[in-house]
Design a protein around this nucleic acid. Structure first.
Lengths: 195, 195
DNA sequence: AAAATTATTCTGACCGGTCAATTAATCTGA
DNA sequence: TCAGATTAATTGACCGGTCAGAATAATTTT
């Protein structure tokens, strides 16, 4: 794949991200995506097999990007408390980015219940998230602050709390409450881990 | 509203539940719903204003029904442990029912990010869930097993853990794992509450 | 000019909602 | 009681509109 082709694909995926965030997974059309990318209708079809192919690449791209960012943030810290705080900071970045991502992510979760391809991409994302949780928990253990019985279970619990709080925040439709939900989520994870 | 009208509406909503579970919120058509209800295409439009109206009533119906069932289950018990176990039993009923409900519920959550009406119905559902959590927590406090700093926060955490585990289970696509996720979820809530 | 890329047009399919026509149910009054 | 009248419920053909994908045309690059 040429450098230019790669750029074009990135451009289309980026446009698809904004388009899906605005209009929703099923509502969005290839025309919408082309409009957001400032290209004509034929372009997305030229660079991707079909609509689903564009959107699958979108899901891959955004989950991978989030994971890399969160992982880097956590690896930059040394203590358990700092790592956990850095993780939460990376997850709850700001209302705008979180709204955009979780709107799209929720759409994909809903689709994934009936689409094997999306389910697989999401499964990889989950595994990546669990690996971040494990990093943090192992550090907490080495500091004697907590004792995990099972890294996998704790990873699932942390993911549940993060997704759950984020969804609940999203449903309030109130950007102001972002800080509150972030703090509550951090507290909940601390309460769970250090028990 | 006559008795017969009420029955017909229930019949259509029930058909819509199955149809949405099978095909997804956006994919499902009024024709599908009519087919599942064994009536002609005009009937749903006769008893409801439009497609969204049918589906809004569906969301109201299933969230209200779940809440009533969970509430009754919890109120039937006397001790903290029994109430919590009864709650989890009512939430994780069986793979089939859970899959059906959460497939549809996820669809509605995704829609709710762009639909005020659905968001409102879901907000009421959340409040109802929080009230159940509060029942359980207050009982736990009166037994001296735990001390809640904030009923609302704990309600949010419990809801996060339940929705989170359920979604993660749904994404495995494996009915066999239902029991494991149920037990993990219960353990996570206990770990969180009794800390 | 040939090839690659982008823009435009076409096509077949499908959907939600409407509505005229039909059928079923209910009512009325002798 | 029951025939005729009135109302309610149901049907399915139809219409305007939209979309994905394919085909084609135009443009740019090499």
């Amino acid at each position: 794949m040429s450098r230019k082709t790669e750029l074009r694909r990135k451009q289309i995926i980026k446009a698809a991200y904004q388009a899906v965030s605005d209009k929703g997974y099923e509502t969005v059309t290839l025309q919408d995506i082309a409009n957001y990318a400032d290209v004509s209708k034929g372009v997305p079809n030229y660079y991707f097999q079909n609509k689903e192919d564009v959107l699958a690449h979108l899901l891959e791209e955004i989950t991978e990007r989030i994971y890399q960012k969160e992982k880097a943030a956590v690896e930059n810290e040394t203590s358990f408390q700092e790592m956990l705080q850095a993780y939460i900071n990376a997850v709850f970045v700001n209302p705008e980015d979180n709204e955009k991502f979780y709107k799209v992510y929720l759409d994909f979760l809903a689709q994934a219940t009936r689409n094997e391809r999306y389910r697989k991409i999401n499964a990889r994302f989950y595994q990546n998230c669990f690996s971040i949780s494990q990093l943090i928990i192992m550090r907490g253990e080495s500091e004697g602050l907590l004792h995990s019985m099972n890294y996998d279970d704790d990873g699932k619990a942390m993911r549940s709390l993060i997704d759950g709080y984020m969804i609940q925040w999203l449903m309030t439709g109130d950007h102001q409450k972002h800080r509150t939900y972030k703090e509550s989520c951090l507290k909940a994870i601390q309460t769970y881990l250090t028990s």
